[in-house]
Computed example of a mutant assay.
Amino acid sequence: MTLKSNQTAIVMLGASGAVGTETLQALLQEKYISRLTVLGRTPIPNINAAFVQQHKISIFDTASYQEYLQGHTAAICTLGVGEPSKVSKEEFIKIDKTAVLNFATACKKAGIQHFELLASVDISSKSKSFYLRTKGELVEELKALNFERLSVFQPSMILTPTNRYGMAQAITLKVWPLLKPFLRGGLRKYRGIPVHVLGQAMAKNIFKDAKAYEILQWDQFYTTAEKE
C-alpha cells in the first residue's frame, strides 16, 4: 500500500551529497508533501518550491536545529564522509555516527515517526571492518530509539555519472557495472546502484505504508523507485 497524503512533512540532513542531491530532487517532484525542511552547513542553491524551507546549521550541535524539527512526520539522513579513507577514524565517527545519532535522537524527541538512513551493504556491529562496524553500531543505536518506522538503505557501490574522488573511483565506476551478470542470488545485493535510482527509492519509500524496522538493498531500490 502507498500513502498519499499532503500532510507528509519531511526534514532532511545531508542533501548536498551525491545521494542527498538525487533524493532532494526526487522529493521536489512529489505532490504529497506539505513541508520539506532542508538542514545543512550551506544552503542548496536554486530551490524555489514554496513548500521548501532551508536552515543553515551546525551538524555537531543539536541546539542549532532542534527547533526546526517540530511538526515533521519523517526524516531522511544521507549525511556521511565521501571518502572515509581520507579522514581519521575519530573524524569518521564524529560525522558518520555521532552527528547522525544526535540528529536521530533529536528527531525522536520532536515526535518524528519515520527515520530513513543511508548506510552500506554488510554493516554489522560485529564486523571486523572499522567502517562496517561503525555503521552497524549506529544502526543498533537507532533501533534502540524505537521509531515507529526505521528504514536502512544498504547500497553496495553507488554509481555516479561523474567521478568525484580520483583515479580509484574512476576505475571502480568503469569496472563495477561489468560485474552485474556475475552477481546473482545472494550476491545481488552487491550490484552497483545508479545514484538516481537510489535517490528515487529514498524519496518514494517515505510514502509506502510500512512499520517497524526494514532493510532495503539492490532489489528493493528498484521496486521502490518504480512504485507510484
Results as ranks from 00 to 15, higher is better:
209 D>Q: 12
180 K>P: 02
48 N>R: 15
206 I>L: 15
174 K>P: 00
127 S>D: 07
71 G>M: 04
162 T>E: 08
34 S>G: 14
156 S>R: 04
112 I>G: 06
97 K>E: 15
169 Q>Y: 07
175 V>Y: 08
25 Q>M: 10
65 Y>H: 02
167 M>Q: 13
92 F>G: 05
83 E>T: 14
36 L>P: 09
165 Y>N: 15
154 Q>E: 14
103 F>T: 06
157 M>S: 10
64 S>A: 02
74 A>W: 05
143 K>G: 02
88 S>G: 15
46 N>G: 09
6 N>F: 08
1 M>Q: 02
123 I>R: 00
150 L>E: 05
122 D>R: 14
120 S>M: 07
145 L>K: 04
49 A>K: 14
179 L>T: 13
38 V>L: 15
79 L>C: 07
65 Y>S: 02
171 I>H: 00
185 G>L: 09
179 L>C: 10
119 A>E: 13
78 T>Q: 10
168 A>S: 13
59 I>V: 13
52 V>Y: 14
220 Q>G: 07
61 D>E: 13
201 A>N: 12
64 S>V: 03
141 E>A: 03
99 A>W: 01
114 H>F: 04
104 A>D: 12
35 R>E: 15
57 I>D: 01
43 P>I: 01
217 Q>G: 08
111 G>Y: 00
91 E>A: 14
110 A>G: 07
219 D>N: 11
122 D>Y: 04
5 S>R: 11
159 L>K: 00
116 E>M: 14
26 A>W: 01
41 R>W: 01
213 Y>A: 01
97 K>N: 08
120 S>R: 03
29 Q>S: 12
107 C>L: 03
220 Q>R: 09
168 A>C: 04
68 Y>N: 09
106 A>P: 03
106 A>M: 06
14 G>I: 07
113 Q>I: 00
55 H>R: 10
64 S>K: 06
223 T>V: 08
81 V>M: 06
166 G>V: 03
21 T>I: 08
152 V>D: 13
88 S>I: 12
111 G>I: 01
148 E>M: 01
137 E>F: 05
170 A>R: 00
188 R>L: 08
225 A>F: 13
136 G>P: 05
176 W>P: 08
15 A>E: 05
90 E>V: 13
31 K>P: 02
